[in-house]
């Protein structure tokens, strides 16, 4: 019984992290119809700035709890600066092009940002461990869990609920849905489509940066962070259905629990099960669990 509880707790913790990384990716696809490979880079920049600001708080020897607002500030700043910059400078020029063009463009941005991060932060790991242990620990099912991982779950839940509410219960959300459904008709009805795109991409970037910033206290912030995140995020969004936020949540949960199960009872399959699940779901439902079949103009 204890092992089942452990699997559930570990699965939810990993799913929370996965969801934070994947939700912006799927949201950007839902509205802008782009698969943004540079999403992983924004996540990594969030981690770097989060580690830098939280590290500054630690070194300043002030109240260590200020590291949490520092992580939040890092996420907002990265999202608010990098998001609009990428959308306005690059992405809006290729919305009318074929998907492969946006893929190549975002992959190029991903590669450039990898090197930009090395230029700015160097190649040595940045270590800011303090916020991870600061909130204390809980003893559950014979295992010690840091309260930080529950905080991450709360942030992921709040982010998902907030995004869902915004899309489904606000005027802005209805406009987003309209723009996502038909860009031309929306523009003809007076919606400022380019502005909606910029805002939507900024929101997606902010989620990526939020995931990165709150991952920084758990991991070593080093070059290569982006690639690992984006590969898993793709798996989750594909499982859930590209462009679908509840789908990303379910995809993250399935991957998280399945991976935790493998680690407890079949550790050699830890990585295999994630992609086996993806393949199985794609075979049965190529559009993903929550994805809808869409007509395509040719």
């Amino acid at each position: 019984m204890d092992r089942l509880i452990i699997v559930l707790l570990d699965g939810i913790a990993f799913a929370s992290w996965l969801f934070l990384v994947a939700v912006g990716l799927t949201f950007a696809f839902g509205v802008l119809r782009i698969l943004n490979i540079a999403h992983g880079s924004i996540y990594a920049i969030g981690a770097y700035l989060g580690a830098t600001l939280a590290g500054a708080v630690v070194r300043a020897d002030v109240n260590p709890y200020l590291t949490y607002p520092a992580l939040l500030v890092a996420a907002v700043v990265v999202g608010a600066v990098v998001g609009p910059a990428l959308e306005v400078a690059f992405l809006r020029r290729v919305y009318q092009q074929e998907e492969v063009v946006t893929l190549l463009l975002t992959f190029s941005i991903f590669l450039v940002l990898e090197d930009v991060m090395k230029l700015v932060w160097g190649v040595s790991p940045i270590i800011v461990a303090e916020p991870y242990g600061l909130l204390g620990q809980l003893r559950l099912a014979g295992v010690t869990y840091p309260v930080f991982s529950f905080l991450l779950t709360a942030i992921a839940a709040a982010a998902g609920a907030g995004l869902w509410t915004m899309v489904n219960c606000t005027r802005f959300g209805k406009l987003l849905v309209a723009v996502a459904a038909d860009r031309e008709i929306s523009a003809a009805l007076g919606v400022n489509v380019p502005r909606m795109y910029t805002i939507a991409f900024t929101i997606a970037a902010m989620f990526a940066a939020l995931g990165g910033a709150f991952t920084a206290p758990m991991v070593s912030v080093v070059p290569g962070l982006s690639a690992d995140a984006i590969v898993l995020a793709f798996a989750v969004t594909v499982i859930g259905g590209l462009g679908n936020v509840p789908g990303a949540a379910l995809g993250a949960l399935l991957v998280g629990v399945l991976r935790a199960t493998a680690i407890q009872w079949a550790p050699a399959l830890e990585l295999f099960v994630i992609y086996a699940l993806m393949v199985a779901i794609l075979l049965v439902r190529p559009e993903g669990l929550f994805g809808g079949i869409q007509l395509r103009r040719i």
Binding site: D10, V143, M218, A260, Q264
Partner: peptide, 18 residues
């Protein structure tokens, strides 16, 4: 057997604690 540079060891640590 975690993946190289996966960075996330929470589940492995739980297993080792159990």
């Amino acid at each position: 057997w975690p993946k190289l540079m996966q960075g996330q060891f929470a589940s492995e640590i739980s297993k080792l604690q159990a």
